[in-house]
């Protein structure tokens, strides 16, 4: 019986398929960019975040294609409705809208169960719009789901299949109560208006998009890669992160020593220290580890494995506020000498 779930594949099986998977994901990455104007940077990050299974926050004014990026990404993966959940949060959003209403029939039986079908607990790819507008009840549920990939039914934890999470916001709030949720998003990318520099392309692409919508066509759903490909990539890289090897001199080598050259690693260290000291960027220990994982994913996806100086530009997406995002966008390339 063929194995269908990527979670059941062994390293050897994944290794055999890894290069193909990488190519497929890259194909999706570059193809999807054709349907947007100057959003390739965000699509790249979405792919990296999706493979690393780290949530990604899209920040930007209304009308800067944040939702459209996620929708087309979902279509491009060929995801069915059951695997995808999206919701726009407001201060008045109730938990039942996100995790399902209480099942009245079960309640009569004395069970406090939610009807989770079609809601966040059953989705594999989730998009939450205006995430910081939600109330504290929703925030607590989200934190548990993002952190522990768990959802509580009648006080008992149930695993959720969530793998890829995107969120969008118009503004990044400063309130302390949102700091925990904010910290879960290692990468935050700004979706900027493009009309100043790409006026003509924007009009042309916009009209094309309107036509596709009117004719109910989705040419971006080209089937280059699937969600399973993303999951396979993640599992493959997870195997590599855990691998220990002994080299010819007898020294044990781990993922860092194998895929992170010393000079690039030191550059990474210098960058992090400089950003913390000069720009007061808050980088928690957890974030630092996750960042390593993201760098590796990017390196694998873009160049097949070894982390290069170019991959370090991921540090430009560590900003916690719009001002920081803007500053790092200039500072990181400057430090890297691009």
């Amino acid at each position: 019986m063929p194995k269908t779930s990527p979670d059941e594949l062994s390293l050897a099986e994944l290794q055999a398929e890894a290069e193909d998977v990488r190519k497929r994901i890259n194909k999706l990455r570059t193809s999807l960019g054709r349907f947007f104007v100057n959003k390739q940077e965000i699509i790249d990050l979405m792919c990296v975040a999706a493979v690393a299974q780290e949530p990604l926050l899209l920040v930007g004014l209304p009308g800067t294609a944040k939702s459209d990026l996620v929708l087309k990404f979902k279509d491009a993966l060929g995801l069915g409705e059951g695997d995808y959940f999206e919701y726009m949060l407001t201060r008045f959003t109730e938990p039942s809208e996100i995790i399902g209403a209480i099942d009245i029939r079960e309640l009569r039986e004395g069970k406090y169960l939610r009807r989770k079908e079609g809601k966040l607990p059953t989705a594999r790819l989730v998009f939450l719009d205006e995430i910081f507008k939600s109330n504290s009840a929703i925030l607590n549920i989200l934190l548990t789901i993002i952190n522990e990939k768990k959802f509580y039914q009648e006080g008992k934890p149930e695993p959720v299949p969530l793998r890829v999470m995107f969120a969008a916001t118009n503004e990044i709030p400063e309130q302390g109560e949102l700091a925990a949720l904010k910290d879960r998003f290692v990468l935050k990318v700004m979706s900027r208006p493009v009309q100043d520099d790409h006026f003509t392309e924007l009009i042309d692409a916009g009209l094309r998009g309107e036509a596709y919508k009117g004719l109910n066509q989705k040419p971006w759903a080209e089937g280059h890669a699937s969600l399973d490909d993303l999951l396979k990539a993640n599992r493959y890289l997870t195997f590599l992160f855990a691998a220990r090897k002994t080299d010819t001199t007898g020294d044990e080598q781990n993922d860092r020593t194998r895929f992170f050259p010393d000079d690039v690693f030191r550059e990474y260290q210098r960058l992090v220290k400089t950003l913390i000291r000069e720009d007061k960027i808050f980088i928690s220990d957890r974030k630092l580890v996750k960042l390593y994982k993201l760098l590796r994913v990017r390196a694998w996806l873009f160049s097949g494995g070894t982390v290069s100086r170019d991959d370090l530009r991921l540090l430009a997406y560590l900003g916690e506020s719009i001002a920081e995002i803007d500053r790092l966008r200039e500072k990181v390339p400057q430090l890297l000498g691009d």
Binding site: R266, Q269, R270, K273, T274
Partner: peptide, 13 residues
Amino acid sequence: PPYYTLLRAIDAI
């Protein structure tokens, strides 16, 4: 000197 460069010496790179 920029802190970034100074780190070369601080971290004895």
